[in-house]
Amino acid sequence: MIDNKGRPNRLGVVGWLGGGRWGLERYLYALHRLTGLGLLAYFVLHIGVTASRAFGEASWTAAMGRVSGPLFKTGEFLVFAAFAFHALNGVRLALVELGFAIGKPIEPVYPYRTSVDEQRPLAIGVMVVAAILVIVGGFGFLE
């Protein structure tokens, strides 16, 4: 990460959610970070819980019994939804970082156009795919 060279991030974490007239992509950015932190927290716990299979069937069954029930099932669904969002939005970010889907450079002639307008269909498209995945995966949690 590049240092800010004397222009500190004064808004801090509050700036993720408010601070200006931001477009859709800014809120996707905030949600990407929130889901990333949630997934990391879950992943650390997941390593501990799934390590129980190293001790055999009784240990595995007991561990799975401790993380069953409606509360954990709901939490697991939220993790699945967070993964679907984070993964698809991550694909969008990687594509944009590599220069795809942002349009070609153009002369700055009034009325000005921004590359954000070029990116918007990609943002909407990946969110639609993420929503479909969440709905299809969600049926598994209702069983």
């Binding site: 991030n9 974490v13 990333g36």
Partner: peptide
Amino acid sequence: HGFYGLRNILFELN
């Protein structure tokens, strides 16, 4: 990926 992402978030807080 997770820890490097967390590091970036924390470093942004100066």
